[in-house]
Every structure is written in structure tokens, then in C-alpha cells.
């Protein structure tokens, strides 16, 4: 407790509440309001409507939501497998090779998303591999961007795992694969789930790389929102953004439930 006087505490809370309301509360409230406003010519909308949400569940916006969810799920799942594999393997490597490999797996997070998209565009618009204009290139872009994130999260989890568990398991006769399946992976499960859910969330909101590589047939929700707002349909854009945020949060909360269960068991 830093501030002892009642009035001082109240002042601190008031200032914090005010800052929070202006910086976080107001924007959220406004975008939520915009998503249900019919006409907005004055200070506040003149009437409210659910039309924008109705617009977004049908037609192309609904497809875009599906595309985003599929892209996020596939890219996150692949990143999870590959990141876990890398983090596990790297535990058995020591010294300079380990540091080098560790840096390599982290680097994608340091490269701007637009440049990742540009690289894929340049690399896969020419032989030997032509992927430009395919769905796959979008998934690849998302995978590259979240791979470092998954790797980092899993290796942090493994780093915090006391060696005792695996050693006791080994002394009891468990071989490498059995140990991995029955001890190591269940114990780091919360980290795996956290890695998956945050990479899924990141993928859902990804714009920079997607906008560079997406084909007309595979438009993600953020790209759709941008083109709506670019066309001036900002209320529809607001409604879609709300849908995107809520979908992301639902998945996150659902997965964190699973994660708490995994951690408790």
C-alpha cells in the first residue's frame, strides 16, 4: 500500500478511473455504439439498429469470418506442432548451436509483417514453387508470423518444468516417447494451450502480411473490415470488428477454461 490517506487513495483511483475510461472505455463504447447505430449525424446516433450485424452474418462477411477462423486454426495448429518440436529438440542441444538456433526460431517475430508478406510474394511468384494467388500462401504468412510466438511460449513452459518429473519417470522405466506423451506434454499443456490461443488471436487480427498476399477467394475478416471502412461503410466495419473481437475472445476464454482444467489436474 503506497498511499495511506483515504483522500489520497481516492484521488489516485479517480485519476486512474478517468484515464482508463478515456483511453479504453470510451473507444470500446463508441465502436460498440457505432456498430448498432442507424444514422449518426449529431453528437450521438439518432436511432439504433441491428442491421449492420445482420449484414455481416450473411453474404461475404460471413465467409470472411469463416476464412479467418480456418486460417487462424490451421496456422496456429501447425505452428504449435512445429514450435513444440523445435522447443523439445532444442533442450537436447547445448552451447553455441543452441543459442544460434534459439535466435533463428525467434527472428520471425522481429520481422515486420508487411515484409514477411512481401518476401512470400517475391519468393512464391517465381519457380520452383508458385503459390501466389493460393489460399495456402495466406496460411503460410500467418504461420511464419506466429511461429516464433509459439516456440517462445513452449520453450518458456519447458524451461519452468522441474527436471525431477522427467527424471523420476525415466528412473521408473519410461522411455523417451512414453515420457513425452505421459509426463512432459501433459505438464506443459497450459503453455501449449496458451500458445495456441494467443497465436489464434493474433492470426484473427493479422492485417499486414495478409493484405500483401491474399487472393480474391480467401479474404480474411480484417481485410474485409479495411475495405469496408475504405469504402466509407464504417458502421458495417464497426459491427464486423465487434464480431471479430467477440469471436476471438470467445475462443480465448474457452481455451483458457480448458487450460485451467489441464493445470488443475
Amino acid at each position: 500500500m503506497l498511499v495511506w490517506s483515504r483522500s489520497g487513495r481516492r484521488l489516485a483511483w479517480f485519476l486512474a478511473a478517468l484515464l482508463f475510461a478515456v483511453i479504453y472505455g470510451l473507444p470500446i463504447a463508441m465502436i460498440a455504439l457505432a456498430s448498432i447505430s442507424g444514422q449518426w449525424n449529431g453528437v450521438l446516433p439518432s436511432h439504433l439498429t441491428l442491421m449492420h450485424f445482420a449484414n455481416s452474418v450473411q453474404g461475404e462477411s460471413g465467409d470472411q469470418l469463416r476464412v479467418s477462423i480456418m486460417t487462424g486454426a490451421i496456422a496456429s495448429a501447425v505452428a504449435l506442432v512445429s514450435g513444440t518440436c523445435a522447443a523439445l529438440a532444442l533442450r537436447r542441444i547445448a552451447g553455441a548451436p543452441k543459442r544460434l538456433l534459439d535466435a533463428i526460431f525467434f527472428i520471425p517475430s522481429a520481422v515486420p509483417s508487411v515484409s514477411v508478406g512481401l518476401g512470400l510474394l517475391v519468393a512464391f511468384s517465381q519457380p520452383p514453387v508458385l503459390l501466389n494467388g493460393t489460399t495456402l500462401i495466406v496460411v503460410i504468412a500467418h504461420f511464419v508470423l506466429i511461429s516464433a510466438f509459439t516456440y517462445g511460449s513452449v520453450s518458456a513452459g519447458l524451461g519452468r518444468l522441474a527436471p525431477d518429473y522427467e527424471q523420476v519417470a525415466e528412473s521408473l522405466g519410461a522411455r523417451a516417447f512414453y515420457r513425452l506423451r505421459r509426463v512432459t506434454l501433459p505438464l506443459v499443456a497450459p503453455y501449449l494451450i496458451a500458445a495456441f490461443s494467443l497465436s489464434f488471436a493474433f492470426s484473427m487480427g493479422e492485417l499486414g502480411a495478409t493484405v500483401m498476399v491474399y487472393p480474391p477467394g480467401w479474404v480474411t475478416l480484417p481485410v474485409g473490415i479495411f475495405s469496408l471502412s475504405d469504402r466509407g461503410a464504417i458502421f458495417d466495419a464497426a459491427a464486423l470488428t465487434i464480431i471479430l473481437a467477440v469471436t476471438t475472445l470467445i475462443v480465448l476464454i474457452g481455451l483458457s477454461r480448458v487450460s485451467t482444467k489441464a493445470a488443475v489436474r
Binding site: 525431477d164 523420476v168 525415466e170 528412473s171 522405466g173 499443456a189
Partner: peptide, 20 residues
């Protein structure tokens, strides 16, 4: 011989019971 082939029982300081 690797640990898993030694046929030993081991109890460590913090027990390391598998929490799951």
C-alpha cells in the same frame, strides 16, 4: 546403461508426483 533400464526406484526431495 540409460536410467530407464536400470531398474531403480527413486524418491526425490519434493516427491515429483505427477500432478496430472
Amino acid at each position: 546403461v540409460p536410467p530407464h533400464d536400470r531398474n531403480i526406484g527413486m524418491v526425490v526431495q519434493n516427491y515429483a508426483l505427477f500432478p496430472h
